[in-house]
Design a protein around this nucleic acid. Structure first.
Lengths: 187, 187
DNA sequence: ACCTGAACACCGTTCAAGT
DNA sequence: ACCTGAACACCGTTCAAGT
């Protein structure tokens, strides 16, 4: 009665992937968590690829909403970028978890095509949002330079998360982000 | 006759992990590649963790040698950092592969402790080397600032590789590294 | 010293069968 | 509409047995 099974499955699966990756996601373990048999998971998501793609799609959609909220709430670029890096920070503070699409990008060659496509879209929505943010302030950078800087910021943040997670130390993330700012990569 | 089995196993396993991750490494597939039965792999490496740790250890050792070669060959910081980023580039140009320890860092929660320890050591040797490089030129940065910048460079390069690999596009890596340089993160 | 076949408990997936 | 048990070919691992 507490909500539909499909959403429950996705919530449990999302936590699992952020902790252990797409390869670490087990239908049988997932079934135990949710309280059904593994064959039932297949009723809602015929294949593991279907589930993975649904997770990445919802994740990107949620990210777009959250990021756009930052733009609306503040005119200040520095404030927005701080909120942005804090989103990635929050994954780490949630039991040393990682960005759903960051961990899946590392598993690139193991992903079914439909999952890969959705993971790519996460990069797209991040870069698009960062371009929007960087374009608000007047700047002498060309459109192409701005796009490349946006891509660089996204990649650097993902890298900071990856390395901090490896160390299991959120201070590593904070120090790295601060070093990016000092160097001038982050506005 | 062409060399010992143990080295052959490690070479095949290394390629496999750089493409598909630690979780994607299969003893049975590996055995087929090498031409033995999977039980024989266990003779040389009792557990998958033993193999993974041996791979990461050898990888870090080789990296140290290569990096130190750069320092000896050139006094120029810009040249050394270019060679450094080119090492990570070469993984991508080798069939879109990834840094062995970068991909394993993403799988952090799935790794046996002995593998995790060796993966951590790769971060250490990279940061140590970058500190050595950054310290050669005289600079007003404190030792702690230098260490944090070294960590930031390593994280940013790993992130560039991760994102470029996700896109399957080495141009993304090149553009991101160039943007790091423009921003002043890379010397 | 090195390799193997057979067994174990796991995995994603399929499907006929239940309600 | 939703769930299940049983089967399939996979997985890492163990171990007694071979040479």
């Amino acid at each position: 009665m507490t909500g539909d099974t499909k959403a429950t499955i996705m919530d449990a699966a999302r936590a699992m992937v952020q902790a252990r990756g797409y390869n670490g996601l087990s239908f049988r373990e997932l079934a135990k968590d949710v309280g059904v048999k593994s064959a039932s998971i297949h009723y809602h998501f015929p294949t593991k690829g279907d589930l993975g793609a649904a997770l990445a799609r919802r994740y990107s959609d949620e990210a777009v909403d959250i990021f756009n909220g930052f733009l609306e709430a503040s005119q200040d670029t520095e404030t927005c970028i701080k909120k942005y890096t804090d989103v990635f920070r929050s994954a780490l503070s949630n039991n040393n978890r990682m960005c759903l699409c960051g961990i899946m990008a590392a598993e690139h060659d193991d992903l079914p095509p439909e999952v890969r496509a959705e993971v790519d879209r996460f990069t797209d929505v991040n870069v698009e949002w960062l371009v929007k943010l960087l374009s608000r302030g007047r700047s002498k950078a060309t459109a192409e330079e701005t796009r490349q800087r946006a891509l660089a910021i996204f990649a650097a943040v993902e890298g900071a998360q990856l390395v901090a997670r490896g160390r299991g130390d959120i201070a590593v993330y904070d120090q790295t982000i601060e070093a990016y700012r000092r160097a001038g990569l982050l506005p």
